[in-house]
Amino acid sequence: MEIWNTIMEQGVLATASEILRWFFMLVFASELIVDIIMKGIGIGAILGVISVAAIVFTYAERKVCAFMQVRIGPNRVGGRYGLLQSIADMLKLMSKEDIIPEGCDRVVWALAPMLLFVPSALIYAFFPFDKGAAFADVNVGVFLMLAISSQAVLPFLMSGYASNSKYAFIGGIRTVAQMLSYEAPMVFSLLGVVMLSGSMRMCDIVEAQSQQLWFILMQPIAFVVFVISATAETNRTPFDLVEDESEIVAGPFAEYSGMRWALFFLAEYANLLSVSILFLPGVVWFGLKVLAMVFVFMWFRWTFPRTRIDQMLAFSWKVLLPLALANVLFTGVGIYARQWM
């Protein structure tokens, strides 16, 4: 009964880490060693979450898209529901030949997929998966997260430049234009949340939501702006101009194969998960809400056509940014009015 109360008070993950910490203290009896071990477990857990998410989302994406397209989807590997399809995909990707295009800039080319994975994984360090369960609960969490996620531009440009392919290069250039222009409305849409909770610490934001209304209800405009710019940030349809199979074949990924391509893939799904978590950080319904968000992104992807580059940039600067700024203004006025009352 006591444990149950602690769980309710602190959250499942925090309790689990407390128990682990207590256990390791018994074994090693040294704060430093236990700290290192705990951090190691944290990193492992985050990487585990990302890999599991990639596997689950690949399967989900296939199934969701299949159902939307009046198909059945994977139904051979692992029973009639094709549950092991993602595993089979992974094995296939790992056993594929690593083709290095002629005339590419070898070092930059090889570095790009790995570098892309770093910011996507690093963002998870600041996520409050549950009450008190954030790997690094820094007081400028939101800011750091945005700063790191914008680093994802560079690897795309690197792979575009280094692939020695015009398609890849156009894709790389497009990434820069797209991600930079969608960064701005995204930041401003998050600003409203920061203003409401009065803190940039992720755990405080979560805490604020459990006391007041959910921010999704208090900041609907910001939420919409965020979802749209998040779609652009994760390069998914209707803003998947970076990959864009029908125009520039696959953009920066065109020349990659096997595991290198799988890293791009992994980063894409890590990003998808992180943007889905971002606006709705955890209370009890954490998992469900994340899945709902992921489903929304998949829904977009399989029903919308793709925009054109000029339309997309115009939409960001002429529609989303003013909306986000107006939202900041109204939030500020609202907060002031509430204090005054």
Partner: peptide, 16 residues
């Protein structure tokens, strides 16, 4: 036309 514009679901419907 649908798939060239990125709407792959439209294509599947037409082919169905």
């Amino acid at each position: 036309l649908a798939i060239d514009l990125g709407a792959s679901t439209g294509m599947l419907y037409a082919f169905r």
